[in-house]
Design a protein around this nucleic acid. Structure first.
Length: 270
DNA sequence: CACTCTCCCTGAAAGC
DNA sequence: TGCTTTCAGGGAGAGT
């Protein structure tokens, strides 16, 4: 499931379409999580892709005509770049043809993702973008910022980490990995953490996410990079999905927090 | 406002 | 073996 590292890997791969012009657009699905803005989307035809970038877990494609395509991959969403595309594959919802004869496809079995289309200068007016907290890999993510956000919070640190309005980009899987790396229990309340512990968490956020980006993201379930390469960071997961396994002689436990699976090692994470 | 719960969806895995 | 049920999760919106 795409979290920050997978989205980062995705937008990097999409840069091979930079300066290419859209020659055709096919929409196969009326609605993903939200209705696909099919009328507006036609505006990208004949325009060139200027750049592919990431805002939190959103893929941002800026076009030369000053319009921007926003793609959220949800849980099972995946972008593919294909040279030959004669027939639609299962769960393909959108296909964009470029003038180098390659196709960018949005494929999403669970339809938890969505696409949006807006004038480029209005992107920060979108409520879901405007509300985002500091990006998990932004240098501006400081101990002071996080401490201030959570010093009065009764919410568990695990939930704070996946709250996109506080730190943007971390999802359920990496939250478990980050807290294991920081040796801090997911069950700790935000307000119980001191600045030293928050510093450890920030270090672990950067360490785990950067490593994951370097390994091309994770490929659990069907996440694959647009160029077809598989990420392999899931091989580096220490606790996620590893209930019952031993770490330094201690068992990894699974608990459900706010309806989400959470993996940790109580003896190591305090 | 701040928090938690529910829901959207399909395929894989578990259960029977 | 094969059918049925459960589970997975991002994030908006409803509910408290």
């Amino acid at each position: 499931m795409p979290e920050l590292p997978e989205v980062e890997t995705t937008v990097n791969s999409l840069n091979i379409l930079k300066n290419k012009k859209v020659t055709n657009l096919q929409i196969y699905t009326k609605k993903l999580r939200y209705t696909v803005p099919h009328i507006k989307l036609k505006k990208i035809i004949k325009s060139e892709l200027i750049q592919s970038r990431r805002i939190s877990k959103y893929v941002i494609l800026d076009f030369k005509n000053n319009y921007t395509l926003i793609i959220h991959l949800g849980m099972s969403g995946r972008l593919k770049i294909l040279k030959n595309y004669s027939s639609k594959h299962k769960h393909d919802h959108l296909s964009i043809k470029f003038n180098n004869n390659s196709y960018l496809l949005i494929n999403d079995p669970r339809k938890f993702g969505f696409v949006d289309f807006i004038e480029s200068d209005k992107i920060y007016k979108l409520s879901y973008i405007k509300k985002l907290g500091i990006d998990a890999l932004d240098k501006k993510l400081s101990i002071e910022y996080l401490y201030k956000k959570i010093k009065k919070s009764d919410v568990l640190i695990k939930q704070i980490l996946i709250n996109q309005h506080i730190v943007a980009g971390i999802g359920n899987i990496y939250a478990s990995e980050i807290l294991f790396d920081a040796k801090i229990s997911p069950l700790k309340k935000g307000k119980s953490l001191n600045k030293y512990q928050i510093g450890k968490i920030i270090k672990s956020i950067r360490k785990i996410l950067k490593r994951a980006v370097e390994s091309g993201g994770s490929s659990i379930n069907d996440y694959v990079s647009p160029d077809g390469t598989l990420g392999n960071f899931q091989n580096n997961f220490k606790v996620y999905g590893k209930e019952g396994l031993l770490v330094r002689g201690f068992k990894i436990k699974k608990v459900i927090l706010y309806g989400r699976s959470t993996f940790f090692c109580p003896e190591i994470q305090k």
